[in-house]
C-alpha cells in the first residue's frame, strides 16, 4: 500500500472526499483494479467497456503522461505518485 494516487474532484465521491489515497504497486492496470476493490465504481470511470483508458482521462506517473510510457502496462513501484486528471483545453 505504498503508491500515492491523487484523486480529481469528480472521483472523490468514491473516496469519501479524500484527495490522496494509497494503492498497491505493480502496473497501472493492477493499480486501477486495486483502487476499484477499495473504492467500488472507480474502474468504470477510468476505463471504457473494452477496458481501455477513457479518452478524457489522463493519468500521470510522477508527472509523466502514461501514454508516453506503457499505458496500462506501465510499471508502478513503491514511492511513485500517480495523478488522475481530467483532460482540459487551453491556449
Amino acid at each position: 500500500m505504498s503508491v500515492t494516487v491523487r484523486i480529481p474532484g469528480p472521483l472523490r465521491r468514491f473516496t469519501n472526499g479524500m484527495e490522496k489515497v494509497q494503492a498497491q504497486e505493480g502496473n497501472l492496470a493492477k493499480l486501477i483494479a486495486d483502487l476499484d476493490s477499495q473504492y467500488p465504481g472507480m474502474k468504470e470511470r477510468l476505463l471504457d467497456d473494452q477496458g481501455a483508458m477513457r479518452y478524457f482521462v489522463n493519468v500521470y506517473l510522477n508527472g509523466e503522461d502514461v501514454r508516453f510510457l506503457q499505458g496500462l502496462d506501465t510499471a508502478i513501484k513503491t514511492g511513485d505518485e500517480v495523478s488522475i486528471v481530467p483532460a482540459v483545453a487551453g491556449g
Binding site: 480529481p8 469528480p10 472521483l11 470511470r45 477513457r54 478524457f56 482521462v57 481530467p86 483532460a87 482540459v88
Partner: peptide, 10 residues
Amino acid sequence: INVCEYCFGP
C-alpha cells in the same frame, strides 16, 4: 464545472 463526473467528458 467543466467535466462530467460520470464519464469525464467535457
